[in-house]
Write a protein that binds this DNA or RNA. Sequence first.
RNA 1: GGCGCUGUAGCUCAAUUGGUUAGAGUACCGGACUGUCGAUCCGGUGGUUGCGGGUUCGAGCCCCGUCAGCGUCGCCA
Length: 592
Amino acid sequence: MLRSHNCGELRVSDVGCEATLCGWVESKRDHGGAVFIDLRDRYGVTQVVIGPPEADQPAIDFAGRVGAEWVIKAHGSVAHRLEGKVNEKLSTGEIELRCAAVEVLNASVAPPFVPSQPDLPNEDLRLKYRFLDLRRPQMQRSLITRSQIIKEMRDYFAEHDFIDVETPILGRSTPEGARDYLVPSRVHPGQFYALPQSPQLYKQILMVAGFDRYVQVAKCFRDEDLRADRQPEFTQLDLEMSFVDAEDVIAIIDGLVDRVVRKVLGRAIPTPLPRMTFEEAMRRYGSDQPDLRFAMEIVDITEIAKTVEFRVFRATADSGGFVRGIKVAGQAEDFSRRRLDELTEFVKRDFGARGLAWFRVEADGTLWSPTSKNFTAEELSAITAAMNAQPGDLLLFLADSWNVTCRGLAGLRKRLGAELKLYSPDSLHCSWITDFPMFERDEESGQWHAKHHPFTAPLAEDLELLATDPAACRAQAYDLVINGSEAGGGTIRIHDPATQQQVFELLGIDEATARDRFGFLLDALKYGAPPHGGIALGIDRWVMLLAGLENIREVIAFPKTQKATDLMTEAPGNVDADQLNELRLRTVSVKT
RNA sequence: GGCGCUGUAGCUCAAUUGGUUAGAGUACCGGACUGUCGAUCCGGUGGUUGCGGGUUCGAGCCCCGUCAGCGUCGCCA
């Protein structure tokens, strides 16, 4: 090692010792006759002093010429700082390293920004110079937290008899699901591998093979548009277990959550984690990933709406729609017309709502709204009672289809929760959402789609509904939700060929297609497949949520932009004509 | 693909209603300085206001297009 200590460990107890430090020049204070350098590495910052009596003037002048982000080595003796010169901001602030000279290991050109800069540079600049951005203590903390979380996961599963098995990155494209990233085959011109959206099929095969408990930190790829919490390549903690039901998988993950939160955050989270069915989540929060850090539950006033004059409510309720709303406690005064117009625009634009009805609860407990003249006093007080509204509250209602009221109110809830700071930044709420529907119906084509994936087993008591009422058929599926974000999801799988066949038929996957795309799984299921199930956890999201960050790029060393490019490497890029020829590929331009 | 926000010196930002030569801090360069820790002091370099077009006597500011980053809807079994 070029160093004897790191830049975060020297203390008063080391005073008098010799030490050699290596690191980056975080800042330099040049007094002509003495130079102070804050030397930074992953572990911290230590002040290095080059001045008399240790250093002669040429050495001091030399030290004065080092610049920001130069890499230097400093050898000297650890000394108490002078009386009253302790720096409270540094863990090493009671001491300094007094050196006769510094050695430059590598100079740096003037960086476009420095890691210690208080205002973050624009994100495109951070991504282009990621090697500088990653020097920032915040980024180092995030990636260290990520490493710790993964370490705890691996330890936990190793202790529970899980076997880590790697599965291929070059696989084959399967129908349904997200858009695949494709890799052309040179050996088989015109044919393509697909990068895995998840190791789903492989892990089921591993169960058939008798591995019993499988785990993997798996890179996954989905060619869909990005979001603040979504990257085209991401990492899952993927696992699968044999001879289990949903309770067993949930129990294992409860234990994992407890351990990771305890070991990494030093906090306790009560387990078993609370659970809620899909139906309840949609009814109370309008979302299958509700943010349970705050209440603001949805209230259904459709029955009241059926009796009122107000056409928007009445017509919706009478034609099978729903009138549902939320209460924004104590905010009647703080929401101007303009702000309410903004919310109206928001639910129209983002969720296709026809409008937003709102009421203020006046001091005397009566409701006021631009449309309140369309209601009788009795109707208004019925609404007040249903919403359990108090003077000063603001009531927001959507009158629409079930789906639009769910999505719109969930959107409002999420937005208002953040804007009004209805939860503390460090609150952590984990819960399970269970009993998802097996299928969703495409509203236009009427085609059924698997809500999770086509290998998901129905609840035993709903098995008959497969044939009679697919919409009502619930799945043995469970999602882990952390702070309103989907942090994991899994299912018990179908291990019976007849049921699998039935599901494929419903999904419109004919036998030939099924055989072509995943015949190997169907074959495997015939050779003694144990009942099995599992789950995949979104590691990037776990880290983001546990670190209290709002963006997944903050926990990924080299993330992609919203247009799926890497600003540092400039991927994707062009390739040589030779490479394309070898693959029998040609690009075509498409007029837009 | 739709909607929205942002783009001014290397970096972070300012610039009144559309009005003089686009400013500040920091970084950088030169100089001074022995106890600083956002060092300080003196001096200096640095601008096609993302790009293209338009309106106007006059555009950083208004309009259209375009590029990039971000947020979001669609999409994400």
